[in-house]
Every structure is written in C-alpha cells, then in structure tokens.
Nucleic acid binder design. Structure first.
Length: 806
RNA sequence: GCCGGGGUGGCGGAACAGGUAGACGCCGCGGACUUAAAAUCCGCUGAAGCUCGCUUCGUGCCGGUUCGAGUCCGGCCCCCGGCACCA
C-alpha cells in the first residue's frame, strides 16, 4: 500500500505557491545563488522524460543550496520560437500563435508544476512574447550599431522539399533532419554577427571555466585555432597574387601545384579562355552538389586545370593552378599550396591527375630515396629545400616563414575554424530582423523607440520556393519609410535565429517586467553571472558559444560587468530506453504523466536520479521504480509509527551511521552523484529501522533534511507531522560530525601471497607487531601460513596486510 | 578516418588516491503473516566444485608492471557520443 502521495504532493504544491516559498527576494538576498537550467522548447507532445530528468537534477541543486543557506533563484521559461514550433504548426494546420500558448500552458500547468521543482513562477520568460523579443531585437540593433553585425552574401542550407532554409544544426549528414531530402546550398544576403572577432578570447577563457572537460573540448575544436602563415604566390601573366594559408611552410619547396576552391573569387580571372568551359562546368557541378557529396571524404578527388600557373616563391618554379572542391572556400583563403609528398589529400589528388610529387622532408629514420607510398606528415629533416636543406622540419617552419616575411611574400598568421554567426532565417516564426533597407541610405537599424517590430499575424506563413521569407510577401509589413531620410524603404523580411532568443534569456529572468531595458542592471550585478548552469551537452557548441559571445559583446559595450555568463556548467546525461534513444518512430517514448499519476512526483524524481550517474544518464526500466516506491513508503510508515519518548537517543552505531551518511549525501549531492547519494540514504534508513525504538525527533528531522532535495513533498509532509511549523527548506543542512563516526576497530583484509585469506579486527592505527600476532591467532588465515617461511610483511595501515611466505 | 567516454552478476549500477570486486536497487529463491492471494516483513542470491565450511575461477580479449590491478602501461576487439577534405 503506497503512501497517499497524491494528497501530499497536491497539498505542498499548493502551499508553496500560496506562501510564495519559491519567489526569490532578488533585491534583498544576502547569498544569491542563481540556479539555471536550459529552458525547454514547448512541444505539443509535452515534457518528456529527458526534460524531467534534467530539471530534477537541477532542482536538487536549487533545494540543496537553499538548505545550505543560499537565497536561491530558480527560474524557468519557454524557448518557443523557431523552426520546430513552426514546422509542427504547419503539420497540424494550426497557427503557431495559437498552438504555442496552448503548449506552454500544458507544460506549465500540467507538467512543470507537478514536478515539485522550486521554480519561481513570478518570473518567467517566453521568447515569443513581444515584451521579450523586443529586447532580442534591441540586441541585434545594438550589435549592428557597434559594428558587430554585418550584411554579406553567403551560402545557406536549402531544403528543396520543405522549401526552406535550414539552420546548420538541422542538416544531418547533408540531409534535412525532418524529411531526409538532400540539402543544397543557396547564395543569399544574410546578416552575420562577427563572433570571429572574439575567437581568441573565447578560446582563452575556456581555461578558467569550470565546465565538463568534454564540453570545453568540443568548444576548443569548434574554435579550431591553428598557427601558420599566409603565403603569396605570384600568378604568371597577372599582376595579382594567389594567397594561401598553410600550417606547414616548412614544406613549401615541395609545393608542386596549387588548388583553389570552385567558389574562389579570382577563379574567372585566373582561368585561361581555352579552359573556361571546363572550369565553368566543374563549378556548376560543385554548386549543384549537396552538402553530403561535398564533404564525403571517401569520394574520389575531382578537379580541373585552370590553364594558369603561378610561381612558387621558394623555388621560383612555375606550378599549375587547379580547381577542386576539396578546398573549402569557408576556411583560410580558399586556396592552398599543394604538397603531395606531405599531405594525404594532396597526395591523393596528385596521384589521380599525375601531378609531380616531391619529397622535401626525410623522416628521422632515413631509408633512402624510395618512392613514397603515401604522404609523410611527420617531422624530419628538410631535403631538396635549397638553403634550408638539412634543417629539422620543426625549426624550418619558423625559419622559412621569417625568410618569406622578410622578402614580403608571406606573413605569420593564426587561423580559426570558427565562422561568423549567420542570424538570418527565411522563416516566419521568429522575431523579425529590425532593419529597414533604404535604397538611398542602405540598411538602417529600426530606432529603439520603434521596437518591437511585431511579427505580423498571417495565415500565409508557409515557406515557398522563392527563398524569400514569408514576411516578404506581406506588403503592409514590408513597405515602410527610412528612419534616416524618410523616403520609401523596405523592411528586412527575415527573422532572427532561434539561438539568439536563447542567447540572453537568463539575463531577462531576474527582471522580466522591465519595459525600459532588457534587464535590470542592479539585479544583474547582484545575481550574475549564473552560479550553476545545467543542460544538455548537445548545446555544448552552438548555444553555449553564442551565449558567451553575446555576453562578451555586451560586456565590451558596457552593459555587463562580466564576460563569461556560465562560470560553472554541467552537462546531464541522456535517458535512453532499451539501449536506444527515445523516439516516436521507435515507439519507446516514456510518458512522464502516467508515472506521475501512478507513483507521484517524489518517487519519479528519485527513480530518475537513481538510474545512473546524472552526468551520464541511464536506461529507463519500468520495473525499477518500485524500489523507490517501497523506500519512500517505508519512510512514511516509519515516521507514522514514531512516538516521542522521554530521554531516548540513538545508539552510538546509529549515530555513527547517521554522520557517515550526512558526509556522503553532502559530498555526493554537491558532485551531482545523485544515484550514490540515494543509495546512502537507503542505507541510513535501514540503520534507523534497526534502532527504531530509540530514535529522537532530531535524528528523524536530519534524515528528512537529507532526503528533502530528492523528495521535497514527502520531506515537507513528514517534517510537519513531526511538529515543524516551518517549511523544511527553511531549516539548515546538517553537518557531519566526524568525531561521532565510530572507529573502535577497523576491519583489515589479510592476503597471503596476494590472495585474500580473511580479515582481522584491529584497533585503528595498530602497530605491525600487533597485527602480526592477530594474524597468527586467526586460524583460517594461519592455516595458509602453516609450514611456510614468512619473508615479508606488507602493511597498509588500517586497510590491508599482505604476507609473503614460501 | 580523427577526438572524447565506456565495456563489472540475470538486469540498472557501486568501488577514495593501486589495497576485502559487486554498495544500493530490480528480478529470482526460501521463510513469516494470511483460510488463501496480494501487500508487507525477514533471510539468501557472481560462477563452478565439494566434506557446507571452504577451495578454485571471475571486472571485453592478449600481454606487462607490482607484494597486490576493475583501477597503471602496451597491443587488440566491441559499444556510445561528437567532429568529419579545416590545408
């Protein structure tokens, strides 16, 4: 018979709300703790187990810190703009402006409120609210005015079936995430945030951030710093030079040809007339090919010769310029010097088109001048390299760069992989980009006092083939006047990337009511940066990088006092089912609502936390939950049986166990090792049950306090039944008293020749002599020593003794 | 292909810093209560062997270091996640 969780949970949720227990006193707080979790995107299916898992783990931190004495601010909101919401609305045939509020209401009222998290419902953020996206637009305008937003041409991902532009993250292996059509590239004018101006800072700060190593690693890779040089190759018969980026200037004497990307701006100028047709055909083919083909590394290399040559500045030789799509326009200069002897890609290309291969680095283990079977990419000594011959390659990198720099033919540079952030989306469901295009004045930011640019309500929001945003079809919206010259002008028809909505939401939480500023500066100073951020590692790169950039920019512009929004970030794991990701197509989706109905929130919360390490996730199995159900029920029954008795106190053993567990639960909760913290609570429960007659109120309340972050409703209920008038979360977290942890004797393992042969009980810190006699006195161990000569005793104090005997 | 993380009972998972492998929970088995069942409570539960107390084996595979290895080193296999022609 399960305890009456329905009644209890409803009661406490009501009381918390009535009393405003979770409404943080932001202005008056003495020890602020901003407990942030990634806000959900409110889908029509409702909150899934993954959300529930993530939020529970974050809420435990909030409740734990509250008990530690912090003033905790734990907000939640809704990331409701974006292509997911829009596509779903299209599929259902219900306008997103109708569907989204409905989904939000369901999330909030039927699911989030039942979780029992300490969300501060007095402060919410909904990114689709004009009062919010006004400031998202303000952010754009502010960056634009300060030269951090640029309009320029660029390729976008286009799904011909959905007839829409896709964000990079919606392109999986070159296919549209939703319909699996092949994604093609389209050239369009877009707005970009110049995040690349911050590359080095974004990289450097990582050293000081307390983040999971995997997350930092992913960011480092994404930023992709590499040191090298830009080298100029004069083009034969032209005044222009071809500039390449290379990390291996030491191999320049082996550069036997050049390759430019099919999108290279100088391609037409370089190509000789007799080659023009062939090059054009190649270029067109490359343009048509989809992202998957283009990035398939196993595909055989293709390319065409431009007919033109350029001059290797090191050797003075003329080398041919080729075009190939293995050179990307998006990295470096879109052109490379090809060193087939020392680069696998160049080697492959040279082999295909019979281009010369010249080895210029000899491995340390020189085997003589055999023909190279594959590119040698390691270090060695330079050969056939003019005056640099004989120099170790590592040294030659800087020597050759210096030489070319002196000759004015090159420059040492640092290259980043990070691209500027394209924020234009040719979709409907987002904040309109607050820009007015004036034929005379060029693009003008919408004046701040005219914000927000409201998203017009229209039924005609379906994207079409034109590549123009649905808003571009609404003349009433598009036609306007220039804020500068008052002449006829047109609004930008695109909307802002969903990632911009979520790049500043945590700045808004403390003061969502402000209509004169994006956030309250005093509260920001008091509460930010965020103390702990918990979220999914799928956002390791994009969301976290963009948010860091926005904060850095706002810092530089004087709006924020910090550069890094999330000094401490932890990624939670993923809940899988039967070893596979939960998905509708697999039919293995667990619906949290039915578990809430059947077991209640406390049991469900604890079960999810008990599945496995929080940062790794776990496998959801329906049958395991009864263990937690029994556990909580036993606690309920135990407290129900308890009667106050005069002068009782728990045994020394019980107290010892209590303090051991206080230590464990404290440490493990702080480290997000919830599964083992719960195991410790179970052990404590067993110990308390064995000593039930002697339990006093204080001991039980301590136990309930340890339980409270995990099962908040039950802890509140039982503590109130024990006579507490105040919420248990107003009490304080117990501290472990190590002196109460019994250490009368320790169990020492005994090995003979490395094999476990038994244990002995000894006083802590017992001398070796004493241990020896104890071991000889222990018959089951002694029999293994019988008739043998003891040659050595290895004693690890209070842990183990290993006796070596022959 | 490259970079991370990981392979431990029937299952989910524990194990500080090289020191009693399997905490805690599920499943299973036995017992108590009950007219009976459910629920609950108590006990057992890595494998094999046997004189029932022990013995041998056991943390993906092979080898090494060490008094002692799930933990460290070298090689290999498999799974998960991320990135993918970045010059």
């Amino acid at each position: 018979m399960a305890y009456p969780f329905h009644e209890i949970e409803e009661k406490w949720q009501r009381l918390w709300e009535e009393r405003g227990d979770h409404t943080a006193d932001l202005a008056g707080a003495k020890m602020p703790f901003y407990n942030l979790m990634m806000f959900p995107y409110p889908s029509a299916e409702g909150l899934h187990v993954g959300n529930f898992f993530a939020f529970t783990g974050a809420d435990i931190q909030g409740r734990f810190h509250k008990l530690l004495g912090y003033d905790v601010f734990e907000p939640i909101g809704f990331d409701a703009f974006g292509i997911h919401s829009e596509n779903f609305a299209l599929k259902m045939g219900i306008h997103p402006s109708e569907l989204v509020p409905r989904n939000i209401a369901n999330f909030r009222e039927n699911q989030l409120k039942r979780m029992g998290a300490m969300f501060d419902w007095s402060r919410q953020v909904n990114t689709t609210d004009p009062a919010y996206y006004r400031w998202t637009q303000w952010l754009f305008v502010t960056l634009m005015k300060n030269g951090l937003a640029e309009r320029r041409g660029g390729a976008v991902n286009w799904c011909p079936s959905c007839r829409t532009v896709l964000a990079n993250e919606q392109v999986v292996d070159g296919e549209c995430e939703r319909c699996s059509s092949e994604v093609v590239q389209r050239e369009m004018d877009q707005w970009y945030f110049t995040i690349t101006d911050f590359s080095q800072r974004l990289l450097d700060h990582l050293d000081d951030l307390d983040w999971s190593p995997v997350t930092k690693h992913a960011q480092r890779r994404w930023i992709g710093r590499s040191e090298g040089a830009r080298l100029d190759f004069p083009i034969a018969g032209m005044r222009e030079k071809l500039t390449v980026f290379t990390t291996r200037p030491d191999t320049i004497f082996g550069a036997t040809y050049m390759v430019i990307s099919p999108e290279h701006p100088m391609i037409d100028a370089i190509t000789l007339p007799e080659r023009a047709d062939e090059v054009r055909a190649y270029r067109e083919k490359a343009a048509r090919s989809n992202a998957r083909e283009r990035t398939d590394t196993k595909r055989e290399k293709t390319g065409v010769f431009t007919g033109r040559h350029c001059i290797n500045p090191a050797t003075g030789e003329e080398i041919p310029i080729w075009v190939s799509d293995y050179v990307l326009i998006t990295y470096g200069t879109g052109a490379i010097m090809a060193v087939p002897a020392h680069d696998p890609r160049d080697f492959e290309f040279a082999a295909r088109f019979s281009l010369p291969v010249r080895q210029v680095i000899a491995p340390a283990t020189e085997e003589g001048g055999g023909k190279l079977e594959e590119a040698y990419t390691g270090e060695g000594v330079l050969i056939s390299s003019g005056r640099f011959t004989g120099i170790p390659s590592k040294e030659a990198v800087s020597k050759i760069t210096e030489w070319l720099e002196k000759e004015g033919k090159g420059k040492r540079t640092v290259q980043f992989r990070l691209h500027d952030w394209c924020v234009s989306r040719q979709r409907y469901w987002g904040p309109p980009i607050p820009v007015i295009h004036c034929p005379k004045c060029g693009p003008q930011p919408v004046p701040e006092e005219d914000l927000p640019v409201l998203l017009p309500v229209t039924d005609d929001y379906k994207p079409d083939d034109s590549g123009l945003s649905p808003l571009a079809r609404i003349d009433d919206f598009i036609d306007t006047t220039c804020p500068r010259c008052a002449g006829a002008a047109k609004r930008d028809g695109d909307v802002l990337d969903n990632f911009l909505d979520s790049a500043w939401y945590f700045l808004r939480y403390p003061s969502p009511e402000r209509d004169d500023a994006p956030f309250d500066p005093d509260l920001a100073r008091k509460w930010l940066p965020v103390d702990l951020y918990i979220g999914g590692n799928e956002h390791a790169v994009l969301h976290l990088m963009y948010t860091r950039f926005i904060c850095m920019a706002l810092h530089d512009l004087g709006y924020l006092h910090f550069e890094e929004p999330f000094p401490k970030f932890r990624a939670h794991g993923m809940i899988i089912k039967d070893g596979a990701k939960m998905s509708k197509s697999r039919g293995n989706v667990v619906n949290p609502d039915s578990f809430l109905d059947k077991y209640g929130s406390d049991t469900f919360r604890m079960y999810l936390m008990f599945l496995g390490p929080y940062t790794e996730g776990g496998d959801f199995r329906d049958d395991g939950i009864v263990g937690i159900e029994r556990f909580l029920d036993r606690i309920y029954q135990m407290i129900g049986r308890w009667e106050e008795k005069e002068g009782v106190s728990p045994s020394r053993e019980t107290l010892s166990e209590l303090h051991k567990v206080i230590r464990k639960v404290t440490d493990h909760t702080a480290e997000l090792k919830y599964n083992t913290a719960i195991a410790a609570l179970m052990e404590l429960h067993t110990a308390l049950r064995k000593d039930e007659d002697r339990l006093d109120r204080a001991t039980l309340l301590t136990f309930l306090t340890l339980l409270a972050p995990y099962a908040p409703h039950l802890a509140e209920e039982l503590s109130s039944r024990l006579g507490c008038d105040e919420s248990i979360f107003r009490s304080s977290w117990p501290s472990a008293d190590d002196s109460l942890i019994l250490r009368d004797t320790v169990t020492i393992a005994v090995q003979v020749n490395g094999k476990m042969r038994g244990t002995i009980e000894a006083a802590p810190g017992a001398a070796e002599e004493e241990l020896r006699s104890l071991i000889h006195a222990a018959a089951p161990i002694e029999k293994h020593l019988h008739g043998k000569k003891i040659v050595r005793w290895i004693v690890v104090p209070d842990r183990i003794v290993n006796v070596i005997a022959h």
